[in-house]
Amino acid sequence: MPLLAALTGPALALLLLGALTSPLTLVVGRRRRLLRFSAYFLLYLLTDLTGVVAACWIWLRCLPLPAATRDARLQTLSYALLARMLGFLRSSAGPVFGLRTTVHPAIPPRGEQPPVPLLVFARHAGPGDSFLLVHALLCEAGLRPQVVLKQFLQWDPSLDILINRVPHCFVPPGGGGAETAREIGALATNLAPGEVVVLFPEGGNFTPQRRRRAIAWLRRTGQFRRAARAQRAQHVLPPRMPGSLALLDGAATAQADVVFVAHTGLDRMDSPTSIWHGVPLREPLRAGWWRVPAPDVPAGSGAREEWLTDQWSQVDAWISEEWDRTGRRSD
C-alpha cells in the first residue's frame, strides 16, 4: 500500500509531462504514447486505491452480520466491487489504447446462461488478456469466476483483498507442484451453476522463446510425442497437465461443461518495447470459444490428456485461421 500511494505522484508527473509534450509528438508524427501510458497508469493506481478503501468499507458493513451469512454477503459484495473496477478499467482502455474486442460466437448475456457450472481453459497471450476474460465472464455473462492466477498478482493490494474473499488459487513461482494441483482441483469440487473456474493451462503468456523452452523441456523429460505435437503448434504453449487434469478430475462430480477460449490481437506485445510500439492498437482483439458438454469429456488421465492436447491444437488452428483471414503472417 505505501508503494502504491508513492507511485501516484510519479504517475501524475508523467501524465503532466505527456500532456505538455503531446503537441510536439503530434508534429513529429508520434502517437502520444507517453500521455497514453501515464494516463492509464494513474487511472489504474487511483482505481486500486479506491478499491482498497471500498473493500474495507464492505468489510465493515458485513461485520455486524451473523456468521452464517457474513461470508456469503462479503463474497457477493466483493464480486460486485471487482466488476465495477474491471468495468471502469476496460471502458478506459478503449479511448486510451484504442482497445476493441470482437467475440464470436457472442457471449450469452446474464440470465441466459445454461444451468450448469463451467470450466474455462483460455489461451494466455498479450498484456491484460486475463483481466479482459474475467471482465467478460463477470460483467457480460453474469458468472462468478474463480481464478487460478500467479502469486505475483498479490502485490496488487485491491486484487489481493478481493480475490482472497472469493474461491481462488494463487500459483507460486515454478508452478507449486502437486500441492497446487490439489488446490486447483478442489476449486471445481463444489462448483454450482453460475460459477466458473478459469485456468490458463500454458502457465504464462505465450512467447516464441517460451515455446522453444517448453518443447525442449518435453524432450528432456522423454515426452517425445507431446514435444512433436507442440512443435506443430505455432501459436500456443503446450498445456501444463497437472493442474489441468486436477481441475477436470475435481469437476467430474459437479458435471461441469468445459469452455475453450482462443484469442488473437495482442500476440506480438510480448515485451516492454513491443508493448510501447504497439500502442495505440491497430487491430481489435478477436476471440472465439467453444463448449464441450460434461458427458463428452473422457474419463481417465490418459484419455483426458490426449483430449486436452487435441483441444489445444484446435486453439492453435483457430489462431492460424484468424491470421490467414486478416492477412497476418507467422514468424
Score class of each variant (00 low, 15 high):
325 R>M: 05
259 V>D: 00
159 L>R: 00
262 A>C: 02
54 A>W: 13
31 R>G: 03
194 G>E: 01
66 P>C: 07
53 V>D: 03
166 V>Y: 08
205 N>M: 10
229 R>F: 01
90 R>L: 06
303 A>Y: 11
74 L>H: 07
142 G>H: 05
174 G>N: 04
312 W>A: 10
14 L>A: 08
132 L>C: 07
204 G>A: 15
105 P>M: 14
73 R>T: 15
168 H>A: 02
88 F>W: 15
187 L>M: 02
7 L>A: 11
79 Y>C: 04
281 L>M: 12
287 A>L: 15
172 P>H: 13
269 M>R: 14
124 H>W: 05
235 H>A: 14
116 V>H: 12
276 W>K: 06
279 V>W: 05
42 L>V: 07
187 L>Q: 02
153 L>A: 06
223 Q>H: 15
55 A>E: 03
201 P>K: 09
172 P>R: 07
58 I>Q: 03
179 E>P: 00
225 R>V: 04
142 G>D: 01
108 P>M: 06
29 G>K: 07
296 D>R: 05
189 T>H: 01
312 W>I: 12
124 H>A: 09
116 V>A: 13
144 R>Y: 02
198 V>E: 00
80 A>H: 09
20 L>Y: 06
330 S>R: 12
95 P>E: 09
279 V>G: 03
239 P>K: 08
212 R>T: 08
141 A>N: 01
242 P>D: 13
147 V>D: 03
156 D>Q: 05
68 A>F: 08
127 P>V: 13
209 Q>L: 10
327 G>M: 05
40 Y>L: 12
234 Q>I: 08
14 L>M: 04
3 L>C: 00
274 S>C: 15
229 R>G: 02
319 I>K: 07
13 A>R: 07
238 P>V: 12
305 E>T: 13
144 R>H: 02
153 L>M: 08
290 W>G: 12
277 H>Q: 14
125 A>T: 11
211 R>L: 08
283 E>K: 11
